[in-house]
Nucleic acid binder design. Sequence first.
DNA 1: ACCGTGATGTTCT
DNA 2: GAACATCACGGTG
Length: 190
Amino acid sequence: MKLPREFYQRDGLTVARELIGKKLVTNLPEGLTSGLIVETEAYMGTIDAAAHSYRGKTERTKIFYGTGGFVYVYLIYGMHLCTNVVANVEDVPEAVLIRALEPVDGVELMKRRRGKNKLRELCSGPGKLSKALGVTKNFYGADLCGEEIFIETCRALPVTTTKRINVNYAGEAAEYLWRFVASNNAFLSI
DNA sequence: ACCGTGATGTTCT
DNA sequence: GAACATCACGGTG
């Protein structure tokens, strides 16, 4: 049921595609919350101008250089956290951004954390779902094979690919079809 | 429905 | 000091 380390130790594009239809879970003292992953983006290390790891190892990107199955969280625009899954093996700095979930468990808790009531508004964006699941910057480096945050098999969903969102700064890399979405799903970020 | 804008703090130049 | 893998809100249609 819970995805094993080997699931993550593959190339980022495969991991990003196969994460669609899996269930992302956090189990914190306030309760358990989860959602079906319906939107991801792959960030492919040294060949990808959009990736944080493109310019090499820094304090922030060092987690990319470890093996797959650990969490990379970062602060964006000074106020939102984005949750990523590290992919591939040691020294191959790839990661998958989780961009949207279809809420499943702990909906009341997610509504409280978000201050929103509409199901559609809970997890339809990377900052939104991070808040709904109670992810904080302390999750940096968390093990997805642990108990606090993990991913389970759930269902198979048809997948569509598109360009990634808000990476216009990345030149040619902005054109790559490295965003994966559950086809015709109502809970996407756009 | 679709803009436009302001909020906010890290990271890297 | 600029840029940033975003969100919520208030305006106009």
